[in-house]
Simulated scan of single mutants.
Amino acid sequence: MAGAVALVAVLAVGLALGRSLATSTAPTPAPGTALAALATLDVGAEDPFDGYVRESFAWREDVDRNGCDTRNDVLRRDLTELDIREGTNDCKVDSGVLADPYTGARIDFEIGAGPSSDGGIQIDHVVALADAWVTGAQSWSEDTMVQFGNDPLNLLAVDGPTNQAKGSGDASEWLPPSTAYRCAYVARQIAVKDAYDLRVTPSEHDAMAEVLAACPDEPLPTRAATQTPRGLP
């Protein structure tokens, strides 16, 4: 019996040592990567959903005062082959082509065409407004809420039905059907949460880490790289 106990003890020490060595030899994420930023985010439970009002984020407000609402700013940034309506200060997008990041499909956009007035394209808050509300936004000022609701860093033109399927899910609940875009998508969510000091839940953190394990050098998106057009001066 004593020999068996000793053997168990030796095995336990060996396993612990193996875990310690694995931890100590794990590569440190490179600066500027999404994986490095993920390690800095606070991890915690969600706040109660009470008090959420979507309108508080003033989505589509012309926050940059360029004479164009946020939806059209994002359409002009993300679509190609644009047809801009005359007399709208280079603002109103009537048609264009979207290479949809979420599905990988081509969408020929025409305002008002198809079963919905959005022409099949919606603007997604990559970190959903409702998700932000339960991970730190409840303490924000009105100005910060409006900024978040219209921040180009957090906005993408995407396929409408796919965006509806996402709802307010975080990375543990929804990822883009196009697996080729998942690294960039998670990196974008991390950039937004980092910029606004939002938490991630434990399950969200683990889902993000699992995606980034396949692309540890995925860069963290920047505001400079995601800005929308400013229109005419």
Rank of each mutant, 00 (worst) to 15 (best):
A207E: 12
F148A: 00
A184H: 11
A165C: 05
A207T: 12
N154E: 10
A130Q: 13
G104T: 14
A171T: 12
T179V: 15
A207L: 10
P152C: 12
R85E: 15
N163W: 03
D194K: 13
P177M: 11
P115N: 11
A157E: 04
G104Y: 09
I107V: 11
D197N: 14
A157L: 04
V97N: 11
F148T: 00
G96T: 07
A187V: 10
V192S: 00
R106T: 15
W140L: 08
P177F: 06
Q147W: 03
Q147D: 15
G112T: 09
A105G: 11
T162E: 14
S168F: 13
S178Y: 05
A157M: 00
R182Y: 01
Q189H: 08
G149T: 12
D108H: 13
G169V: 07
A99D: 02
A132D: 00
A180V: 08
D131W: 08
S139T: 14
K166N: 10
T88S: 15
S116D: 13
T88P: 01
R85V: 14
N163R: 04
A209V: 08
S172P: 09
V97L: 14
T179K: 03
Q164K: 11
A130C: 08
D151E: 13
V126E: 01
P202C: 03
V97I: 15
P101N: 01
V158E: 12
D118T: 15
L212Q: 03
L212V: 04
T162G: 07
R182E: 03
D124N: 13
A157S: 10
I84H: 02
R199I: 00
V146A: 08
D108G: 03
Y181E: 15
N154Y: 09
